[in-house]
Amino acid sequence: MKIAIVLGTSRRNGNTANLVEYFIEQYPAQCTLFHLSNYDIAPYDYNFNNQDDDFLPLITNIIENYDAIILASPVYWYAPSAQMKVFMDRLSDLLVINKPLGRKLKGMSAGVIATGVVSKPNTCFEEIFRATFNYLHMPYIGMLYCTYADEIENIASHQQYLDKHVSTYVTTAFA
């Protein structure tokens, strides 16, 4: 299974980026990272005046070449990062002006990787993803969430913690 991981975070070496890198290290042959900071993606526009940005080439690559997509974001105020929200909003392009491409999302597995300061994120965070994937008829494989509250300030330095969470996620999501 080829997995596209789309990372939306403002900190290249932050906890979410570290968790994604750790995940990729465990499954390097299957995973490819797409860091949204490397792309120029404009916000959704009802007049579609944003078609010269990087969204369409990026999503086309993902849809045409991968079996699953994992969206990775820190939890910011109960929601995904601004970069991730813009990316997700642009999926609307695939429902209006790029319908043939959008139809190819149907059946593609989709999941979430996230980090935050609370031990368990508020349900509204995951629901944004779950509802989006459900609307697009993408089987939801669940969320890998790790906290960095209290004693875990840098999740990358906690090998045992990561091993447990990543292996549990992979076992349930990709079984």
Rank of each mutant, 00 (worst) to 15 (best):
L19K: 05
L19N: 04
L19I: 05
L19H: 04
V20H: 10
V20S: 05
V20A: 08
V20F: 10
V20N: 07
E21C: 05
E21S: 14
E21Y: 12
E21K: 15
Y22W: 08
Y22E: 14
Y22M: 10
Y22L: 04
Y22Q: 13
Y22N: 11
F23I: 00
F23R: 01
F23M: 03
I24L: 08
I24F: 08
I24Y: 09
I24W: 06
I24C: 12
I24P: 02
I24S: 06
I24G: 10
E25P: 01
E25G: 04
Q26G: 02
Q26A: 05
Q26V: 00
Y27D: 09
Y27A: 04
P28C: 09
P28Q: 08
P28K: 08
A29V: 07
A29F: 05
A29Y: 07
A29G: 01
A29T: 09
A29M: 08
A29Q: 14
A29K: 13
Q30W: 00
Q30H: 08
Q30S: 11
Q30R: 10
C31E: 05
C31M: 07
C31K: 04
C31Y: 05
C31H: 03
C31F: 02
C31V: 04
T32V: 08
T32F: 00
T32I: 03
T32N: 11
L33P: 01
L33F: 02
L33T: 01
F34C: 02
H35V: 00
H35I: 00
H35R: 09
L36Q: 02
L36D: 01
L36K: 02
L36P: 01
L36F: 03
L36W: 01
S37K: 14
S37N: 15
S37D: 13
S37H: 06
N38D: 15
N38A: 10
Y39E: 10
Y39N: 06
Y39H: 10
Y39T: 09
Y39F: 15
D40A: 10
D40V: 13
D40H: 15
D40Q: 14
D40N: 15
I41E: 07
I41H: 06
I41M: 08
I41S: 07
I41T: 06
A42P: 00
A42Q: 15
A42V: 05
A42N: 13
P43F: 13
P43S: 10
Y44K: 03
Y44W: 15
Y44S: 06
Y44L: 15
Y44I: 12
Y44C: 08
D45W: 06
D45H: 08
D45P: 05
D45F: 06
D45R: 11
D45Q: 04
Y46P: 01
Y46W: 10
Y46E: 13
Y46A: 12
Y46T: 09
N47F: 10
N47Y: 09
N47K: 14
N47E: 11
N47H: 11
N47D: 12
N47W: 03
N47R: 14
F48Y: 12
F48H: 14
F48L: 01
F48A: 10
F48I: 01
F48D: 04
F48G: 02
N49D: 12
N50R: 05
N50K: 07
N50W: 06
N50S: 05
N50Q: 07
Q51C: 07
Q51R: 14
D52Q: 13
D52A: 11
D52F: 02
D52H: 09
D52E: 14
